[in-house]
Design a protein around this nucleic acid. Structure first.
Lengths: 332, 332
DNA sequence: CTGAAAGCGCTTACAG
DNA sequence: CTGAAAGCGCTTACAG
């Protein structure tokens, strides 16, 4: 605790109200008075107290961003996008990771409500709508990802995996593949299910009966062990569609270990295009999710919704797109 | 803004003070009164307002964590460690990324001071001691990484690269290498300089005259272009020590592109052991920096320092260690 | 263009 | 074991 506005006011020979107005530029104050006030502020190295301000105004300049695990390479760009959008408009963000922990999730929600955030972006499936209803009850806007539909105080962002998946399947078919497998994410994860269903449906539509179709988790080693199981069967796939890049990287690792050539013997397709996808050798072909835009869109969705009288949410859609990477060595 | 403590008090037939005491467990309150209060809290879905609390207590439960860029894979574990340590003790953290931007850095510092944080962990070289002095002036404790020495309100964490580097050099010498190059980080980055000096000194000590020694930046493509320049010379190195894993991954990528075999033709050593190091093919041999411990130590350093009368800081040391990874394919 | 005063929603000595 | 009251440091109608 340093100085207070009162001290600044006294030294500048004005009232606290005037200091407040100068600092917040909330009213025209004579140039001379401004100068005096700012001079004292500089001398004293005065900073106003944001807690007092928030209490006095009764509205906070805070938004929450909830993710599951910061080490998951899906999130950095989402965070950056959200934060940038919030900062641009003068808002601050509280970043929370659930770590997939129930107790922690509870305490995050409490903390967010106590902090009187205006809105919360829930970018992980580790919190569902029911859990987040505490936020809604408190009058806080929420935006979800891949959980519909919108409603009062609820907006959604839906990532359209369809398009990227179709492109990927065309790509694989064009390469002459006839046997495709699917390693999906966790069976209890909504996004993972959506992706799996889209993959299976898309493959069937092209008369490729996907087999096997495995549920995995989002850790790299899970992709690897799924592949090991797959390779011990007789009817081996020639292409593997993975529910995320991490799964794909694990799959590639296991394939290499088993001596299978990629893409000569088998093709692997991921989803997300995490920033490390291009480092994989051979480079990972994947379906890009516009993660930074997921973040900015999430903020904008909240911001817009909260400006509406009825605070009725909306649904936003973001496209995916196939990214084909060739080994630069091969490409020359 | 939902209900207030006053409303809860009225409904429960007690005074606001009692409600406060029940909720904060700051005094013994009769079981019956507690029950009544908590019942009303539940009914009303009451949450206390943290801003009012912070203003009233006059001390915040906030710590700042400053990094440069969230997409840099060095940071996630640091963040996780810091956050976990803070949460464990009931503190919250404000995460800020400078994005290497001066104006943004300024505004981060202001925000941190206005938020009345108790301490700030500055985990990026993009803020130096002079810049951070604003925090110290405001009575806020600071912990730096690889910037010494400690002082009033200043603690430091020093990562001892020496040990890992010596192990790495022994390893390389043991493999029969005689010509080593160094691709260091940016020449204006203190940590990068420390690492470079340690590498050069260590190599000389083993009678390996490092050549060339190049300054790069921490982006992957920089490592790649450094290698390209290197390969066009006559006296090619057989081992390349890189100032970070990202540089090393870029270097490996350029080597592959040029048709050089790793490690048959040339060995590459990174620093950090980012979580993706093991995905590189061939797997990246690197010097591990205990990043999660950097985070927890940073918090503990602040916490301890702030409990001292004189708030005199201390220096903490963290060891590094060589991690040799063999391609699993080769290992069988 | 500026000030006096009330109020934001808590906490905490002080008193009983 | 509990309450009345002052105070935390701002902001903002209201008034002039």
């Amino acid at each position: 605790m340093g100085h207070t506005m009162r001290e600044v006011a006294k030294r500048a020979g004005v009232s606290p109200a005037t200091v407040s107005r100068v600092l917040n530029k909330t009213r025209y104050i004579s140039v001379e008075t401004q100068r005096r006030v700012l001079e004292v502020v500089r001398q004293l190295k005065y900073f106003k107290n944001v807690h007092a301000r928030r209490l006095a105004t009764g509205r906070s300049d805070l938004f929450g961003l909830v993710i599951s695990e910061i080490a998951n390479p899906y999130f950095p760009e989402v965070i950056r996008g959200f934060q940038a959008a919030a900062w641009d408009r003068g808002f601050d963000v509280i970043l929370c990771n659930t770590q997939y922990d129930q107790a922690r999730t509870k305490s995050i929600l409490r903390k967010l409500i106590e902090s009187d955030v205006r809105g919360v972006a829930v970018m992980t499936s580790s919190i569902d709508k029911a859990t987040a209803s505490e936020l809604i009850d408190a009058g806080i806007g929420v935006v979800f990802c891949n959980v519909g539909p919108a409603g009062k105080l609820v907006s959604t962002i839906s990532i359209d995996y369809q398009r990227g998946i179709e492109q990927a399947i065309e790509h694989i078919v064009g390469l002459g593949h006839r046997r495709a497998a699917v390693i999906a994410g966790p069976g209890d994860n909504r996004t993972a299910i959506t992706i799996k269903d889209a993959l299976v449906a898309g493959l069937k539509k092209r008369n490729l009966n996907p087999f096997p179709v495995i549920n995995s988790n989002y850790r790299v080693d899970a992709g690897a062990s799924a592949v090991r199981a797959m390779l011990s069967t007789t009817d081996k796939p020639t292409a593997i569609f993975c529910g995320s890049d991490l799964i794909a990287l694990g799959a590639m690792s296991a394939l290499e270990e088993a001596g299978a050539g990629i893409p000569e013997d088998i093709s692997v397709i991921g989803i997300d295009d995490i920033s490390f996808a291009f480092l994989a050798r051979p480079p990972l072909t994947t379906i890009r999710v516009p993660r930074e835009r997921v973040g900015t869109t999430a903020f904008e969705a909240l911001d817009r919704m909260l400006k509406l009288k009825r605070r009725k949410g909306a649904d936003y859609y973001l496209e995916t797109e196939l990214v084909v990477r060739r080994s630069t060595a091969t490409a020359r």
